[in-house]
């Protein structure tokens, strides 16, 4: 089972790398960009669990290790 986890800076939390990239995009003429947030994209392969179990396990992985709830949000996608 393939799992994708997207970790991103929480709204309201300063993202210095995103801000610098926003500035750079604007200097290249991409004036339509109004916000850039830079996070992490984590892929995992899980064995021996069904989709429902995987959902719960990955949720726990995110809460305990993969994301820091003080500064980050996460989103999980599970593919059959």
């Amino acid at each position: 089972m393939k799992v994708s986890v997207f970790v991103s800076p929480k709204q309201g939390v300063l993202d210095p790398a995103g801000q610098a990239t926003l500035g750079s995009l604007k200097s290249l003429g991409f004036d339509e960009v109004s916000d850039v947030r830079i996070g992490k994209y984590i892929t995992m392969r899980l064995e021996g669990v069904d989709a429902e179990q995987a959902e719960a396990r990955v949720q726990e992985m995110c809460e305990r290790l993969l994301a820091n709830p003080i500064i980050e949000d996460f989103k999980v996608e599970i593919e059959g």
Binding site: V13, L14, D15, P16, A17, A20, N68, I70, I71
Partner: peptide, 10 residues
């Protein structure tokens, strides 16, 4: 309590 972000100067 709290967390660390990257330095603003990057």
């Amino acid at each position: 309590p709290g967390a660390m972000l990257r330095n603003t100067c990057l």
